[in-house]
Structures are given as structure tokens and as C-alpha cells.
Design a protein around this nucleic acid. Structure first.
Lengths: 119, 119
DNA sequence: TCCGAATGTGCACAAGTCTTCAACTTCCGG
DNA sequence: CCGGAAGTTGAAGACTTGTGCACATTCGGA
């Protein structure tokens, strides 16, 4: 194993760890889109978007096709969309959970949660 | 919405974007474990592990309980384990895919893949 | 052919992340 | 009550990333 799996995983997550990249991926969930279009929705500089698109491309998460004057991007596999859905679900669950969790955490100081079965 | 959702998501993924943190989470999938134990498996300095555990704690992904002389960590919700499984599945799919994908990518230069339905 | 729009790239600088080291706290056994 | 083991924390320095800018490239149309 040249690159340990857990390191590949960490890199993969780091690739997702940028607001613009997340938004691009979410926009692409609905189908391929030209850069111009993404640019309109995202409110970042063109070159900045290009940089982030390059990161996603290198990571193999998206692919680009030139169509005449413009370049169209698309998710390279639907799995990406699936992962994003999983993340969204989990994240919102965690956030809503925190209503109850926070109380518990504050109440007991550093002796936090262990909500998983105690063996 | 104080923090836009896509930014929260990016932060969440960045939290996962570190080899030690990934490994800790994976070890904790099997149940709560004392720091000493993690330390034995991970081959990093104690203080370094502690730093990463602190990151995970702040992110709300794990919780710690002091038990006498030692501190025991546990996932704060089983959802985390679920996300890791999803990520592993997707990552391995992407890696195996790349056998075929790579050929396609190299063959057609920058005009890469759009494997999602063309609208 | 020449111009301008649409993108990508290289660079320098600001900002954030990791690792290491030393000091501190808590608990247990003697 | 003291010494040591288990963890945690804060700070400094090395390193990695993100951003904005100027410039190169590629097309399509006048």
C-alpha cells in the first residue's frame, strides 16, 4: 500500500473542506453546468473559482468538457452526490441534537457525552 | 442562519481531514477506548494525539470521560461511524473506478468524463 | 485577421494548521 | 503528604493553503 488508506481518506475529506468547493459540488448535483453559470451563483473571483475547480479536478471529483466558448463541469460519479447527502443529513442531525447535548455538556463540565453504549 | 450551511459543512469535512483524527474515529467505531490504548495503536506523541482529540472534541464528534487515572473517549453519535462507512465505500469505489477512468482521462486530454446524465 | 469574452496559470503575500516542547493538573500508591 | 503516571494546554516555528493580480490561451464573430 503506497499511501495508507487513512491518509487517502484524510486527503479526500480535506478536498471537501472548502466552502466554494462544497457549493460547486452541490450545484453540480443537479447536473452539468458551465463555469460562467457557477460563477454567477457563487460570488467569487473567476480565477479563484478556477483554482478550486482545479483542485476538484485533480481529486477526480469532477470532469470538464469544453463546449465551444465555454467549459462545462460535471460530477465524475454520482457517488459524490450521495456522500454530500449523507454529510448533510448527519450534519443537520448533529446540529439539532446539540439542543439537548449542549445542556448536558454544560451541566457536567469536561465530563462530556459518551452517548454510545458504555461497552 | 449565522453560519451558512455550506461553510459549516466545509468545516466539518476539514475536521475529518487529518490522518490521526480519521484513525481515532475509526478506532472508536468499535467502542469507547482509553487514550493510552489509542496511543499504543497510533504511534504519535502523546501531546500530538491530545491536540487532535481536542479538535474532535471541539467539533463535537467525540466525548471524553475521566475514569480514575485514565480518560476514555467515545464517538458522541453513531452517525459518525455511518459517515465513515459511507466515505470508505465511496473512496474505494472511486479508486477502483480509476482503473478505467484513468485510461479515459489520459486518452482524451482535458475533455474528461461527465458520467452523470447530460440533463 | 484582429478583438474581446471565457478560463486557466504562476506568483507573492496573508492566513491557517501541525508538530514539538515545556509546564500544569489530577489521581493513585506508598 | 510526596512522587510519578496519564493527559492536557499554550506557544513558537515550519509548512501548507487560499486569495487577488497580471498575464497567457482559446474561441467565435466582425
Amino acid at each position: 500500500m503506497p499511501v495508507p488508506l487513512y491518509q487517502a481518506k484524510a486527503e479526500f475529506f480535506r478536498t471537501l473542506g472548502h466552502p466554494v468547493r462544497i457549493r460547486v459540488l452541490e450545484l453540480l448535483q443537479e447536473g452539468p453546468r458551465p463555469v460562467r453559470d457557477l460563477l454567477a451563483d457563487l460570488d467569487v473571483e473567476a480565477s479563484s473559482l478556477s483554482q478550486q475547480l482545479a483542485v476538484l479536478r485533480r481529486a477526480g471529483l469532477v470532469g470538464a468538457t469544453r463546449e465551444g466558448n465555454t467549459v462545462v463541469y460535471a460530477l465524475s460519479t454520482p457517488d459524490v452526490a450521495e456522500l454530500l447527502r449523507a454529510a448533510r443529513r448527519i450534519l443537520t442531525e448533529m446540529i439539532t441534537d446539540q439542543g439537548g447535548l449542549l445542556a448536558e455538556l454544560r451541566g457536567s463540565g469536561a465530563r462530556a457525552g459518551s452517548r454510545t453504549a458504555p461497552v
